[in-house]
Amino acid sequence: MFKKLFGKNKSEKIEVNQDWASFFCRIEDKPASIRLNLALHQVAPINGYYQQIWFSVKLLHPDENGFTTREEFETINAIEDTIFDNISTKHDVILAGAIKTDGRLDLYMYAPATDDIEKIVKDTMLQQFKEYRYAIDFKEDKEWNDYYNFLYPNPYEFQTIQNGKVIMQLREHGDNPEKKRKVDHWIYFKNNNEADVFIEAVIDLGYEILNKEKNEENEFQYSVNIAREDVTIPHEVNDYVWELMELANKSNGMYDGWGCPIAN
């Protein structure tokens, strides 16, 4: 995992992991793809990095969903990399996330100051990407509200990201996603009654109760391990995981992930 050092103040530096992830959602009722550094959640807001930089470039040939086409993908990536690299040559800057939606790419960055950044961006676009229309804006965001409240995924979107990571690991080991196998899940509850309500509901959905344990040292004392024969096709995984999350939420529980053997 790559790491980069950022100055927190004159006497202290913090280490930020690079844990980039993407997910799909809707923004103003339009399809959107958000890519962000999840690791910033551990350290943000970073002291001194209070100036938010917003850069937006209009795609020349978006597809029907407003995303980049294969033909334009490399150019848009080059614009993102070049803009960030050129700003970074003169400023300490953190790229928090990027959004593709409605035929444009938006970058969200944080820096201690924004002096001459507008000129850097203007010169870059004129010299290397003059056919593209762009916009840039700055604002103070001491609490990193746009990172937490706009870029950061909600619990269901976050779980989708985690689902994708598990699915990718399975594929790397030759898993056949269309083959059913026992997929088990872990859910935690604060009290026994809430755990039992959940158990009754998932039995009706065809789940087997593998285990139920109590650990008084944890706030969520009761752990429930369940399993069912399922495939690992991404959209189906999301469907049954979200269903379990909803049932857990109704019983004030916490869904904590899934696993399964590889099916060849």
Rank of each mutant, 00 (worst) to 15 (best):
F189A: 01
F189C: 12
K190Y: 07
N191D: 13
N192C: 12
N192D: 10
N193D: 06
A195H: 11
D196H: 09
I199Y: 11
E200K: 15
A201C: 10
A201F: 15
A201R: 07
V202L: 04
V202M: 09
I203Y: 09
L205F: 09
L205V: 06
G206L: 09
Y207I: 06
E208R: 04
I209N: 05
L210Y: 04
L210E: 09
L210P: 05
N211E: 10
N211S: 13
K212M: 14
E213M: 12
K214E: 15
N215D: 12
E216A: 15
E216V: 14
E217W: 14
E217H: 13
E217T: 07
N218V: 12
F220G: 03
Q221H: 01
Y222R: 11
S223G: 08
N225E: 07
N225A: 11
N225Y: 12
I226H: 03
A227T: 09
R228P: 02
R228G: 03
R228K: 11
E229S: 03
D230T: 02
D230I: 00
D230H: 03
V231I: 06
I233K: 00
P234R: 00
P234N: 04
P234I: 01
N238Q: 12
N238P: 07
N238V: 13
D239M: 08
D239R: 05
D239F: 02
Y240Q: 02
W242E: 01
W242A: 07
E243I: 04
E243H: 15
L244G: 00
L244R: 01
L244C: 08
L247I: 09
L247E: 06
A248F: 11
K250I: 08
K250L: 13
S251N: 11
